[in-house]
Design a protein around this nucleic acid. Structure first.
Lengths: 340, 340
DNA sequence: GCTTGGCACTCAGCCGGTCGGAGTGCCAAT
DNA sequence: ATTGGCACTCCGACCGGCTGAGTGCCAAGC
């Protein structure tokens, strides 16, 4: 039905104009700036229909129309094909990220890159390690009864814990424990490693059971604590300037950005299928962030999504552009993790 | 001279009222709210004098007066005695900080505490290690030619580096190197350790020189890299709401808060003499932060100042209260570092 | 020599009214 | 289904007057 198509074209035009101008858009301006091939009056009829269906609304009588969350949703779902990045952009992204020296640096650079590309507030979650594996466990004796447990994971992260044992351990005993420990958890995924550690003390010489239990607990703690810590990094908060109202929008968002738990919830579960997730306004889990949208994507080595990254911005944002940027960055970061 | 004293009292009253009300304060309101014992006319004369001397100014003719940076400076230097914390406050601070489990946690909690106490943006610098000492160096063989160098410092921080050596090392050789290495750097300050490492390869058996050089380089790198990294943590940005103008004040500050180098410059050199440093408006190093003040204090174990913490806020802030909070937190954090 | 009351003056901010323009909805014509 | 015409609405800008807080100055008083 051709009229239905035109209505969608009108909606698209409204969204694009509103995003560009930040002002309610009227029928006349619309036909001037887009090749719709019809008169303002026709557009008015279409707008009335779109308003009835809840896709647009007018701030007050005799003003132009503004997209609703539902309108943005339709726009994102059906009226958008993600613009591919230009070659120059791709090169810029990859060269910027390739300069990273370690995982921390990758995360830092990703945040910076994302916020600059999208001119929004960027959020990058540290890779969770639930899918990563234990590369090596090292026991270092500090004093006769104090051990340093160093845990090295396949992502390159290192965790350490100090353990007090009741009885002093000889170097030989330490070597034995180290060997068994690595046999138990080496190469395993985090979740498997934790499970395996439960039974660890049954494998060692009776005299070492007490120490083994302590050590196993420390390793398990280091592992799970780290998994739970789920750090996130935020950048580009200066871009908040373009968000509009301070009290209604900026302040709640600033508060959310400091609460990492909230942030993680906002980013949502990572899905690493090459797609970006868009959460628009009230669709998100927090009602005081009703005027902000989240564009996120999962990333990780191979096709595992081990973390999310994305941006937070006003519902009135350039969705095609941001989606393209987020997707591109997620892909490049994944590729870097592949190589590591 | 009694009239001079009264002028100072007037200045103090102006600062206090302006901080409280955020509005220019006039002569009449002043005599009503403070026991100055003189008439508004007299106060007007005093105000005129204070204005001549540059301590206050009026936003426009026929408005009340507002303190200038110079006025705040005088207020802070001569009209303020830092209010001691109440017992309850002290207990709250110490119990909140005592719950920290490690250095990271101490820093996190300090930021949160500071921002809540002062209702400003809090900034805490990680302890720099230039004054801290090397507690232990551990060498862990990962594969025959790959070593993990783990460095433990007196502050509790741990750094690690991976080193590739040309020739495989036996366990005995490793033990020898480990021993010599600890003899060389153990207990030394970072700066001394770096110096001592220069000559490290001369002390070992000729066959090990190559490996020793590599390892020494890694240790030196870990040490100095970490010293340079100088991380800072920021919190309480939601308090920016009370800062006034977005473009003139909040935005530049948000930008500064993301640039850690800038932040460190803002915090300034730590002086750990129990005093707080106050930098008011234009006194700071950045002219686009002319309407913000910094209240900072050094902290660290013993009487060494190894880092700074503080808050950033509008020049119009409650200096006595803020100074008290910053000082108190710096002291408690120092005490915690003492114990560790 | 300070201090004080009086007085004229200034000016930001509020209030109310007017006006223009952008935009709408509806209707009749095609 | 589309279009031009038309009456209507209402936001926001503009204007002028008013008010009140606050000042500076001066002459009188302690």
């Amino acid at each position: 039905m051709v009229v239905e198509d035109r209505r969608l074209a009108v909606l698209r035009a409204i969204v694009e104009d509103y995003v560009a101008t930040e002002e309610p858009v009227g029928s006349k301006a619309l036909v001037e700036r887009h090749q719709l091939g019809v008169s303002p009056a026709t557009v008015r009829n279409d707008m009335a229909a779109l308003e009835d269906e809840g896709f647009i609304t007018q701030p007050h009588t005799s003003a132009g129309r503004v997209p609703t969350d539902k309108g943005y949703r339709l726009f994102v779902d059906r009226l958008t094909q993600v613009k591919p990045m230009t070659g120059a952009e791709k090169r810029a992204i990859s060269s910027f990220l390739d300069g990273a020296v370690d995982l921390d640096d990758v995360v830092q650079r990703s945040v910076r890159l994302l916020s600059q590309l999208t001119r929004q507030v960027a959020v990058v979650q540290y890779p969770t390690l639930s899918r990563s594996t234990v590369r090596h466990v090292e026991l270092v004796s500090m004093t006769p009864t104090r051990l340093l447990v160093v845990l090295i994971l396949s992502t390159g992260r290192v965790e350490q814990r100090l353990v007090e044992v009741d009885a002093a351990l000889t170097d030989d005993e330490l070597a034995t424990l180290r060997g068994k420990l690595n046999a138990t958890v080496g190469g395993r995924r985090i979740s498997e490693a934790i499970a395996a550690l439960d039974a660890f003390d049954t494998e060692v010489h009776p005299e070492l059971v007490a120490a083994a239990t302590e050590i196993a607990a420390a390793v398990a703690d280091a592992v799970s604590d780290h998994r739970a810590s789920d750090r996130v990094v935020v950048g580009g908060t200066a871009n908040l300037s373009r968000f509009g109202e301070f009290d209604t929008t900026i302040r709640p968002l600033l508060e959310a950005l400091e609460e990492h738990v909230v942030l993680l919830k906002l980013l949502g579960e990572a899905e690493h299928d090459g797609m970006v997730t868009v959460r628009i306004g009230h669709e998100g889990p927090f009602q005081n962030l009703a005027t902000t949208s989240v564009v996120a994507a999962g990333y990780g080595p191979g096709d595992q999504a081990i973390a999310s990254l994305g941006i937070v911005g006003p519902t009135r944002m350039d969705y095609p552009g941001t989606m393209a940027s987020v997707r591109a960055v997620a892909r490049y970061v994944s590729r870097i993790l592949d190589e590591a």
